[in-house]
């Protein structure tokens, strides 16, 4: 699915070096590491938003940084760590924007896409908020709406920057479980950066640990080793 070859990730100075890494469909990877280690930059590089300092990232053997804009939006969706909401924009309208590439001249969706949007809102239990304004719901509800919007894009790759940061414990748990289910059911490759190590371990997610300038793949993480990756 995603292959990373000899990549150096960073803006002006190198943050993470990746020799060789393959990410598979149907899995949820937890990107972990200290603040400022480059987790967001790593996700933004896979998004094609931040160029690599060297090396390349391949998506189905195509270089992600040379993909056309619409090829990219058809393949990769992103959920930022915080969506502030937009005044007078309703939740259903917001989630529908995930289908933007498929919409008519007047921005309308076809019936099939409309149904999919409703289905996604139901799956994430935010259907009752459909007609509420996005700036008038809680942080957690907004986060769920943002995930629904990204899922509406229906891409094989989904990247989430700390999707659980503003959720309460039970919603955190549900969010991770939901993502795992979506990844297996729809055969998506999902990457999320997180500090929720316990939840990730409970769901036995494979880890991508960024530390000391490299990204290490840990098929599983043991509690006693955690401190190795956070100093």
């Amino acid at each position: 699915m995603i292959e990373i070859e000899h990549a150096i990730i960073g803006h002006n100075r190198p943050l993470i070096e990746i020799e060789d890494l393959t990410l598979k469909s149907g899995k949820v990877y937890a990107v972990i590491g200290r603040n400022g280690v480059g987790k967001s930059t790593f996700l933004n590089s896979i998004l094609g938003y931040v160029p690599l300092m060297s090396g390349k990232i391949l998506l189905n053997s195509k270089n992600i940084h040379t993909l056309k804009r619409n090829e990219l939006s058809n393949n990769v969706a992103f959920v930022a760590s915080k969506f502030e909401g937009v005044e007078y924009l309703r939740v259903r309208e917001y989630v529908s924007l995930g289908k933007f590439a498929n919409s008519s001249f007047f921005g309308k969706l076809n019936p099939e896409d409309t149904n999919h949007v409703d289905l996604l809102m139901e799956e994430l239990s935010i259907l009752h908020l459909a007609d509420k304004f996005t700036d008038k719901i809680s942080d957690g509800e907004r986060q769920l709406a943002a995930v629904a919007r990204a899922l509406a894009q229906d891409t094989p790759v989904l990247l989430l920057d700390e999707p659980t940061a503003f959720l309460d414990y039970s919603n955190k748990k549900r969010m991770i479980e939901k993502l795992v289910r979506i990844a297996t059911e729809k055969n998506k490759c999902i990457l999320l950066s997180t500090h929720e190590l316990d939840l990730a371990m409970d769901n036995s997610l494979p880890f991508l640990a960024a530390h000391r300038g490299i990204l290490e793949v840990l098929p599983s993480l043991r509690k006693e080793n955690i401190s190795d990756y956070f100093h």
């Binding site: 998004l47 938003y49 804009r69 619409n70 990219l72 939006s73 058809n74 990769v76 969706a77 992103f78 930022a80 937009v86 924009l89 309208e93 917001y94 924007l97 995930g98 933007f100 590439a101 919409s103 001249f105 007047f106 921005g107 894009q153």
Partner: peptide, 21 residues
Amino acid sequence: MAKYLNVLVLGEKPARLLGVN
């Protein structure tokens, strides 16, 4: 341009990631 403005209210980065030029 109306359809593109509908997405632009999210901000530039999200709009670009949704395929807006």
